[in-house]
Design a protein around this nucleic acid. Structure first.
Lengths: 166, 166
DNA sequence: TACTAAACAATCGCGCACGATTTAAATGGA
DNA sequence: TCCATTTAAATCGTGCGCGATTGTTTAGTA
């Protein structure tokens, strides 16, 4: 393989170099934005005793319970090596229960406890509070969300392709 | 303070709820995109023996060396608790040197070694290879980059504000 | 029915990320 | 000059994130 790369559209070398630079900045912006966003969630989630990934897991479980570890992993894009300890921490905090599925002993069913359900009420104010932190107006938010959603689904496909090649 | 939140523009409750939902999805999309992007960098960076944050640190050092730990932290948005061990690993790999600044013994100067400089040549093909993974055309890339850059600089401001309140 | 393969969660090791604290050096007055 | 304050990096503890491996259960098949 040479440095010749198959791009979707024909471009001059100068345009190509510019796009390359841009994608590098884009990746870094994504990395930065994700970290900053997590930091802004922290003061909102600390009172609930949750981290951002734990909050995501609870959101998923409030939507659908019981869920298996695998289903949560699918929803959040995380694997069992990440989720198992995270769920154990939620369990230790009394927010969820974990039990083997009697119908298939390979699976583990996760479910909010009463305390975990009660937390949902406290968590209702989080999204609106977070919105106040976001520095974009509704239109920009919409545009960013739209492009980013396409981006993520494309990345997911690329990632799945990579995973199937071994 | 009540649940009444000060948003930039006046909206009906229904619109407000929609935007709240959107920002939640946006944050998750950001979180997912960042993780996916790191995963896609991995096969490109593994041959270089770098992780993505290490790659970012080397990019910064290739641009400007020597840099202090604080300058790198400023550039990458990381603090010394993250950078010190990361830089020690790069040092252990023979890619950078770390030494106290003789003019100010509080500072530590970090600089690529010859091996670290040589790595730059190998790393030249990374951005173009990464670009092939990205599922957007040049225009979308540009638009995403533009919105995201505004977003990040806004978040940075919000984050700085939060930091100054204690 | 055996025996292999696949699916699922858990575990291990390593690296990032950060809040809080500590140590050391420089700075700025009284 | 002396001392309090500030600045810079390192350290500690906890929690994500994941590649690789392991153990167990289920499914598929000869």
């Amino acid at each position: 393989m040479t440095t010749e790369t198959t791009t979707r559209s024909k471009q001059t070398p100068a345009q190509f170099a510019g796009v390359v630079k841009l994608d590098q900045q884009l990746c870094f912006a994504l990395y930065s934005a994700s970290g900053l966003m997590t930091r802004l969630y922290r003061p909102l989630l600390d009172p609930l005793g949750l981290t951002y990934p734990q909050y995501l897991a609870m959101l998923a479980l409030w939507e659908r319970a019981p869920s298996t570890v695998g289903e949560l992993g699918e929803a959040l894009g995380l694997d069992s090596a990440t989720l198992t300890p995270l769920l154990k921490r939620l369990e230790a905090g009394g927010l969820v229960t974990r039990r083997r599925d009697p119908a298939d002993e390979r699976r583990v069913l996760v479910e909010p406890t009463a305390k975990g359900q009660a937390l949902r009420e406290q968590a209702r104010s989080v999204p609106a509070a977070m919105l106040c932190n976001l520095p974009l107006d509704a239109d920009e938010l919409k545009s960013l969300h739209h492009t980013l959603t396409r981006f993520v689904s494309g990345l997911r496909k690329a990632d799945a392709g990579r995973a199937n090649r071994d």
